[in-house]
Design a protein around this nucleic acid. Structure first.
Lengths: 206, 206
DNA sequence: ATAGACTTCAAACGATTGTTTGAAAATCGG
DNA sequence: CCGATTTTCAAACAATCGTTTGAAGTCTAT
């Protein structure tokens, strides 16, 4: 009667969890809500992921592996091309996130989930992210250091910290600015990226 | 035997709720954890506040009423003094939050709670904040508009949106920068404010 | 001192939480 | 086709959730 669903149980759980975590938070979204949205049995979460905490980590892993790869690819391309600018490096960092949020196969809300991870003071989650994806920020920090040699280490870290905040907040769509009527999702995201790069580059250079 | 506690049941609930909401989120902190930390009976929350949702709103109201008042006071003082600068207006916005987070009578974690409110896509909470405290942002936006006449409305709103993100993120201490050993909490907060003003002013002017 | 209002308390309410169980169903390799 | 493995399922687990109850305690004002 019914054909095989286009996505595996695992994938559907991850997709539903991502959306509900973005909307209601990690504690706010229950496994029953997740499995209902994914159209799978409640026990499937513990069968495939072991626990809710593991599911949360897997939601991050699924997106961040590729996101990190793409960011570093673009960064390497810029460095290889010769003359990197602040704007180009920021572009390398932001564009993969922008593409992810436009991906039709889901991912449009993942940046919101990521921003929630910052809001959670949860140290387990933070060390998980830092241990597994900290090297990306490290590489970008090195690139910025080369472009801003007049700043000492302390000063650079302060500015990067603030820049990450601005990027996180804006990419998660936490702000008050709404998509204008008649403006496509893509256009809106590109506007966000454009303003973000302009603002952040000025702040880093100041 | 025991003396009267220095704070009323109401105040102790608000204080404990503030800390636990900052640490675990609104859904993550239970009323049993809150009342245990406040050393009051479980039923006291519903007696004094009616419901958990009302408690959450009251946690905001307690701080935001005074925070908003102080921000607008400082803004008015700057405008009255004659020649406002971008840095001065940012200072007027940030300093009251800085003072709040240094207040010995609690409040040191309220900015984290406030940042959580942004992460919550919860529309009830957002309309509550917008309805009750939106006029503060409106007044500041007008001040910025006067200082940045070369920017059209669209462009200004984009930049203010990004600026609010940077401020929210940094004042909530979401970043990776930790207080240095030997540095007092006050010194750390003042450093944060100083870098924040410098960065944001440049981004707004860019 | 006593009536009346306000506050606190232990206990319980039904609902929901993450997780586990063991059997049914589906899938796969030979 | 069959035995073995993997996956799904309904049901139940103890624990915790926000909220309500009615009695006990505390306070104030006459």
């Amino acid at each position: 009667m019914h054909g095989t669903p286009p996505f595996s149980t695992r994938q559907r759980i991850l997709g539903a969890a991502e959306e509900l975590f973005a909307e209601r938070g990690f504690a706010g979204a229950s496994l029953r809500q997740v499995t209902a949205a994914a159209n799978v049995n409640l026990a499937a979460v513990n069968y495939h992921f072991g626990s809710k905490d593991n599911l949360i980590e897997e939601v991050f892993r699924r997106r961040l592996d590729e996101l990190s790869r793409r960011r570093l690819e673009r960064l390497a391309a810029i460095e290889a091309a010769g003359t990197p600018t602040l704007e180009a490096v920021l572009h390398a960092f932001i564009t993969p996130a922008l593409e992810l949020s436009l991906d039709r196969r889901g991912g449009s809300v993942f940046m919101r989930v990521l921003a929630r991870a910052f809001a959670e003071h949860n140290s387990n989650l933070r060390t998980f992210l830092s241990d597994n994806y900290g090297y990306v920020l490290k590489d970008f920090a090195a690139a910025f250091a080369r472009l801003l040699p007049q700043l000492d280490k302390q000063e650079l870290y302060w500015r990067l910290d603030i820049a990450v905040g601005a990027l996180t907040y804006a990419m998660a769509d936490f702000g008050m600015i709404q998509r204008r009527t008649g403006e496509s999702e893509r256009e809106h995201r590109e506007q966000t990226a454009r303003h973000l790069i302009h603002f952040t580059a000025a702040g880093l250079r100041a």
